[in-house]
């Protein structure tokens, strides 16, 4: 018997006016599972994260976390439940230092005291390679550093379900490998991971399962290597016509 689901999306629909972003999405993610999401731009990947984290509300359908509906919960309530997220376009607290950004997430996301959280923040900043910028205002970071901060801040909330949105973009091969190692170590702690990424080999190295979104629908769901080999995925996502 597999692990119980931590997240279930049931017939989720979302449209902005006439533009359909999610259509009848059914998805179940087990506790401790690593799920990768790929799809072309505009496929609805980030909107799916917004629906799970509460930044957007679905037009219809249900979102269950630990078997309980979270449809009516606000983003801060979902964060406190254990849903941590990063943003595709980094959203730093610009005038606060890098350390204060992570500290704020640790204090309010995981409900610890400031003194307790300080030690853990230093550890996370080391892990994410931001110790050199620890006292710099987050608004002055480069794009790459901002992406690292997104990961650091989401880790600081002690998430049970971590939603990572394209954090590997712009990394060198060596940096990507280091990120893969970090994500693997993180997964060993039991965190459930959903990772949207265009760097497919990073996903293959870290997740158990891969889904492909296109036009707001899941068009393929399975083991990462099998999904990548699927003719339909190669045609839609990679632009490779089947022979």
């Amino acid at each position: 018997m597999g692990a119980p689901p931590i997240l279930e999306l049931c017939q989720l629909d979302k449209a902005f006016g006439k533009i359909v972003i999610a259509e009848g999405i059914d998805l179940s993610v087990s506790q401790g599972e690593g799920l990768g999401i790929i799809g072309p731009n505009g496929a609805g990947k980030s909107t799916l994260f917004n629906l799970i984290a509460g930044d957007d509300r679905p037009n219809s359908g249900d979102i269950l976390f630990d078997g309980r509906s979270i449809n009516d919960m606000k983003p801060y309530q979902r964060s406190r439940l254990g849903i941590g997220r990063s943003y595709q376009i980094p959203q730093p607290f610009g005038k606060m230092t890098v350390f204060e950004n992570v500290l704020t997430a640790a204090v309010f996301g995981s409900g610890t005291t400031v003194a307790e959280a300080e030690d853990r923040c230093i550890e996370i900043l080391h892990r994410t390679g931001l110790m050199g910028e620890v006292n710099k205002p987050a608004g002055r970071l480069t794009l790459l550093q901002r992406k690292r901060l997104e990961l650091a801040r989401s880790l600081a909330t002690r998430p049970r379900l971590l939603l990572l949105d394209e954090i590997a973009g712009g990394l060198t091969e060596v940096e990507t490998q280091a990120l893969i190692n970090t994500i693997r170590d993180l997964r060993e702690t039991g965190v459930t991971l959903i990772w949207i990424e265009h760097i497919v080999h990073a996903l293959i190295a870290t997740v158990d399962r891969l889904i492909v979104l296109n036009g707001g629908r899941i068009i393929c769901d399975g083991k990462p290597r099998e999904v990548i080999q699927s003719p339909e995925v190669r045609r839609i996502y990679l632009g490779v016509e089947p022979e």
């Binding site: 801060y76 730093p92 801040r153």
Partner: peptide, 9 residues
């Protein structure tokens, strides 16, 4: 927006 994502009401 980001403050809500780290648990701030």
């Amino acid at each position: 927006r980001a403050s809500a994502s780290v648990g701030i009401d």
